[in-house]
Amino acid sequence: MATEFDPVADSSGIRSQPTTTTAFGREWNLTRLWYGFVGTAGFLAVWWAGGREVPSYLLPTPGEVAGALWAELVSGELLVHLGESLLHYIPGVAVGVVAGGLLGIGMGWSLVIDAALTPVVRVLRPIPPLAWIVFAIIWLGLGHTGAAFIVFIGAFWITFYNAYEGVESASRDLIEVATTLGVDTNRRLLWRVVIPDALPGILTGVRTSVGQCWMMVIAAELFGAPGVGYEIITSANNLAMARSIAYMLVISVVFLLSDWAVRRVRSYLLDWQQ
């Protein structure tokens, strides 16, 4: 599942010198900021130089993209299309995370459920969410519901897997302690020990879902569901590449914002851990 979009990759501790931490969990200091500025300027310069040499329908310049972005923003179209994307993204992620989390907890805890469902899960889990697009189309049509279905499948398996791992590896020691303190039902054990112990894993699943599902959204929209992804493909079909790239940037921004929000929630819920 390690793609370049993987939002958890940056927590691996590659950066070794702690300074001050602010936006997006990265470490910032003046030197880094300066290098970042130089790198960005260099990137834009190369882009600009390339864009000047070729027609706009092959590669628009940064200025043209900025212009297109501004035009979409002031016309209000950007918000409309972002709203369309959110209309299938949010329900898909929400239902997928809850359902996947519940199944993961259930299978991780109950040997009976685990034994009964493992064969089905083994076969279904490797299927990429986008492969379900055929069912999304014939069952639901490629509107919001169909796209939400694809998003749901993505969020479902990601959260399922993390919840399952978290519950399965819940501390035996803490479970024992709880039983010596009078916990004598599965329900209490799950609620008081297993789920809190698995919460870091579950929340990693939620965070990964929130990130990865933007890919599901765009993929579903490339097939025709309305939203930002649909604008990317139709603009490109009309050779309006600046507009296409403008909407690609929109995806980047909403990805970063949603990931940031989930991280905030996560560090709030796991304040006992840091």
Binding site: V177, L199, W272
Partner: peptide, 29 residues
């Protein structure tokens, strides 16, 4: 059985509970 209180070498406190909540665990149950 909580009537046989057990103390472990590795403490095994519930890391997500505060000191107060850890002490209260058995009473809640």
């Amino acid at each position: 059985d909580p009537n046989r209180g057990t103390v472990f070498q590795a403490y095994h406190l519930f890391p997500w509970l505060t000191v107060r909540e850890n002490v209260a665990f058995g009473l809640v149950e």
